[in-house]
Design a protein around this nucleic acid. Structure first.
Length: 328
DNA sequence: CTCCCGTAGT
DNA sequence: ACTACGGGAG
């Protein structure tokens, strides 16, 4: 459902778009793609890496502009570059996925089953959503069990709601959430988030991806997770380091227009979403996380016991697990 | 000891 | 692109 605008020169949709503003005044018509915080990266990257090597695009180089409401990102079509290269799914991806599922069944992983999924499951909707948000804030780089303990302590002290957190002492919060990773920063973020939720959302949490991303401490991974869990609204794939690593090993993703590996989880997400059917967007995360913890580990992946190694372009190409670590 | 992990700041 | 954060794991 895209609304292509054929003649940008006449319409210049950016002028009416709060996210994008033209730089008036200069004799050369130059359009600066100016958007909020994290959206900037997406657009700038698309333009920058694909064609220009800079964050500015000259107005006359833009041939088309499209905006879709489902997809939040505006897209620029730039002279000499085609955005719409057809993307075909990697061969055998269904077999690979099925193979990984089977391995996951036999070898049980400690899979962080996302503590936030059950966070505050007994609370009313609004409170539950807030609990999910808090749990997501705390859970990054933290074991599920530790995170759960922190959530329980917050709950017991009545500090799992925007209004109470807003008035609470930051030191108190800090001590309650300890020992979650980065507790100092997270305590500070929690206070800020509570204030924002109170003032802008009546104590509820933002219901869009963009607004979630504006909260301190909420990045792409958690924003997608919160959209999924709190709002039951799948806006994108929740890509963590496991999904990022394994997708690249399997050759499932690449930098646009190349066969190079993606360099960031966000690039991986964009690339995966181009072909992976939406039904898989949610289950792919727990599946690959568990697989990544037990078999396709960051160092010394156990390709020898992996049942899909014959379908994996990276199999046995990195130092494998037990065999040899002679090294000097 | 080194590496790792999401996010933010640089 | 690189790094701090704050612990856990190797």
């Amino acid at each position: 459902m895209r609304r292509p605008r054929s003649s940008l020169k006449q319409e210049t949709p950016f002028e009416n778009n709060p996210g994008c503003e033209g730089l008036g005044g200069s004799s050369v018509p130059e359009l600066r793609v100016f958007v909020r915080k994290k959206t900037l990266e997406v657009i700038a990257k698309e333009v920058k890496e694909e064609s220009y090597g800079k964050k500015f695009v000259r107005l006359h180089d833009i041939e088309d502009f499209s905006y879709s409401k489902d997809d939040k990102h505006p897209q620029l079509k730039v002279k000499g570059f085609s955005i719409s290269d057809p993307v075909r799914p990697p061969s055998n991806w269904e077999k690979v996925l099925e193979g990984i599922r089977k391995m996951r069944c036999s070898e049980d992983a400690p899979v962080d089953s996302m503590g936030c999924e059950k966070a505050g499951s007994s609370l009313p909707p609004k409170e539950r959503r807030f609990a999910v948000l808090v749990s997501s804030l705390l859970s990054s780089q933290t074991k599920d069990q530790v995170n759960h303990g922190a959530i329980q302590r917050l709950l017991q002290n009545g500090l799992l709601a925007a209004d109470t957190i807003d008035t609470a002492n930051e030191e108190t919060i800090k001590s309650l959430i300890y020992p979650v990773g980065f507790y100092t920063r997270k305590a500070s973020n929690l206070k800020k988030v509570a204030k924002i939720c109170l003032s802008k959302y009546d104590g509820d949490i933002p219901s869009s991806l963009e607004e979630l991303l504006l909260l301190p401490g909420i990045g792409p991974k958690m924003a997608h997770l919160v959209m999924n869990v709190a709002w039951n609204n799948v806006q994108g794939i929740c890509v963590d380091t496991h999904v990022h690593r394994i997708s690249n090993r399997l050759g499932w993703v690449s930098r646009p227009g190349t066969k190079q590996k993606t360099r960031t989880p966000e690039e991986t997400r964009e690339s995966l979403q181009l072909w992976l059917p939406k039904e898989e967007w949610v289950p792919i995360n727990p599946l690959l996380v568990g697989f990544g913890q037990t078999i396709c580990t960051p160092l010394r992946p156990r390709c020898a016991i992996c049942t899909v190694s014959d379908l994996c372009p990276s199999a046995l190409k990195e130092a494998s697990s037990p065999a040899s670590t002679p090294k000097k």
